[in-house]
Simulated scan of single mutants.
Amino acid sequence: MTVTEIATLRINTPHDWNSPTIQSFFADVAAQQAAWSGYPLHYFQDTADPSVVYILTGWESVPAHYEWIKSEQNQKLLERGKSLIEVVGLQHAHVEAKLENVSCIILEQWKRGDEEDASGEHEEVGSVEEAPEQVCRIKGYAQEQAVEGHEEQQDVGRKRYFMRRLSVQRV
């Protein structure tokens, strides 16, 4: 089963997502990593903090992703990005995220054992490789209005991250 990489990055000031330097950097990351992995990268922005960018993409396996991380090609990208971004977190969810036609997503995480919605509906969830006691669910929405109001619905023990799709323009 494919795993989904969820990388959390923070854009360093004075840059923001629309800065030409940031756009060029993330366009190169997307092109090079996708060529290596065979999976497209999807960029999302935290709705509460525009400096936080998430990369969501697939990998055949966690070891395949770590091969990329160690590669000379990726190390050059990381060196180039040193002054532009900070890597805040990285995790792999054993769930396949279908993100091609979504404009926003809600990422939820909670401890194993509480895998039902309050509504009783079951949805595909996957364990988190780096913290097997946690489970993860990624819900995609075609329109941003679909997530309005969800931000106030925080359940005890659940973390929710609300994200808007970002596009990269080659500069």
Rank of each mutant, 00 (worst) to 15 (best):
T4I: 03
E5N: 10
E5T: 08
I11C: 06
N12Q: 15
N12P: 01
N12L: 15
P14Y: 11
P14I: 12
H15G: 06
D16H: 12
W17P: 09
N18P: 00
S19Q: 04
S19G: 07
P20L: 02
Q23A: 06
S24K: 14
S24Y: 03
S24T: 14
F25K: 11
F26T: 05
F26N: 00
A30C: 12
A31M: 06
Q32H: 09
Q33W: 09
Q33I: 05
W36P: 00
S37T: 14
G38N: 03
L41K: 06
L41S: 11
L41F: 06
H42F: 15
Q45S: 13
D46V: 01
T47A: 07
T47Q: 14
D49W: 01
P50T: 11
P50W: 01
S51N: 09
V52I: 15
V52S: 00
V53A: 07
V53Y: 04
V53L: 06
Y54D: 01
I55K: 03
L56N: 05
T57L: 06
T57Y: 00
G58C: 03
G58K: 02
G58F: 04
S61P: 02
V62D: 08
P63A: 12
H65V: 01
E67V: 10
W68K: 03
W68G: 01
I69K: 04
Q73I: 13
Q73H: 13
L77V: 07
E79Y: 04
G81S: 07
G81K: 10
G81N: 08
K82C: 00
L84Y: 14
E86L: 10
E86I: 12
V87W: 06
V87D: 01
L90S: 01
H92L: 11
A93I: 07
A93R: 01
H94P: 00
H94C: 07
V95K: 05
V95I: 15
E96H: 13
A97P: 10
A97D: 08
K98D: 13
N101A: 07
I106E: 14
I106P: 04
L107Y: 09
E108W: 01
Q109P: 00
Q109S: 15
W110C: 10
W110G: 14
K111W: 02
K111Q: 12
G113R: 10
